[in-house]
């Protein structure tokens, strides 16, 4: 067990010290800061408009109702900005970015022969499981850092007005959304829960890519094929259910607080996530118990 923990510690150390992790983190941080600046521009525009058009009394209070809270921290951080280009890029390229830092490390170790040395010392199952856990953690960390940067950066610029259900049209978060009710009762909890969902997806997806790399030798296929399959399944499901069912099936649309096209359903999301979590874990375990010659 001590050996396993040491191996895991070493793998986690490798994640944070890989230049790919730093590159991906840097690109994502730039992207979320840019998005934060755009959100601030919208907020500032609305503030100026309010100050210009709504008269103020002698005591400085507004004589008419100001629509200031239509832009709040809770609908301006990247996870809540629906129908905007940068969040779209962020969420739709996330399955690729999250796998770059670590998921192909198995193939590199296989090619260099390092895998055999570790398996001889540690055993097959702990090795494959340890790699899976590390891949999962790398995915979680790769997504979590930019999300926290986005939330704190936007919090520095835009006030955290409590979302008012009367302005639901502006937030585009409805009661049919997964976190819709929580969003209006406790917006901070809803935002943190959304971050948790995004990180869970990122971790699971990094695990999927690692699982594919156990069975293919082409690292391009290991990185991009699962992503293309996900897009393909999403496209097929969306087209097949058009006008028939309005339940959201695209995982990408569950990652934001609101779905622009369908009704979010907790069971669909949980089912998809459970599959993404269990299938790669099983693949890693199967690989680990295979009794073949090194």
């Amino acid at each position: 067990m001590a050996l396993f923990w040491r191996f895991l510690k070493g793998e986690i150390y490798k994640i944070f010290h890989s230049r790919f992790f730093l590159i991906v983190a840097a690109v994502w941080i730039v992207l979320v800061i840019l998005d934060g600046c755009l959100a601030y521009r919208t907020y500032a525009g609305n503030l100026r408009l309010t100050l210009d058009t709504i008269p103020t009394g002698q005591d400085g209070t507004f004589q008419d109702y100001p629509f200031l809270q239509i832009y709040s921290l809770y609908n301006s951080w990247i996870g809540a900005r629906v129908n905007q280009p940068i969040p779209l890029i962020f969420f739709y390229t996330m399955p690729v970015y999250t796998v770059i830092p670590y998921s192909w490390s198995y193939l590199s170790e296989k090619r260099s022969g390092y895998r055999l040395t570790v398996i001889a010392k540690l055993g097959r199952l702990p090795y494959y499981l340890g790699k899976y856990i590390s891949a999962f953690l790398s995915g979680v960390c790769t997504a979590l850092i930019p999300l926290l940067v986005s939330f704190t950066f936007v919090a520095c610029l835009i006030p955290a007005y409590r979302p008012d259900v009367n302005f639901a049209l502006y937030y585009q978060v409805q009661s049919t959304d997964l976190l819709g009710n929580l969003y209006y009762i406790h917006p901070l909890a809803a935002s943190l829960a959304d971050m948790g969902m995004i990180c869970l997806f990122a971790g699971c997806w990094a695990g999927v890519s690692y699982a594919v790399s156990l069975y293919v030798n082409n690292q391009f296929a290991a990185l991009f094929a699962p992503y293309l399959v996900l897009l393909y399944l999403t496209a097929t499901a969306e087209k097949a259910q058009v006008y028939r069912s309005y339940v959201e099936v695209s995982l990408f649309d569950y990652l934001q607080l609101s779905s622009p096209s369908g009704i979010q359903n907790a069971w669909v999301f949980l089912g998809e996530m459970a599959f993404l979590l269990i299938a790669p874990l099983l693949a890693a375990c199967l690989r680990g118990v295979q009794n073949d010659v090194l």
Partner: peptide, 19 residues
């Protein structure tokens, strides 16, 4: 802003081009 949007991402196009 302030109006519901029913725009959905053209995923089949994305699959086609990215593939």
């Amino acid at each position: 802003d302030g109006a519901p949007s029913f725009f959905s991402i053209p995923t089949s196009w994305a699959v086609f081009v990215l593939w």
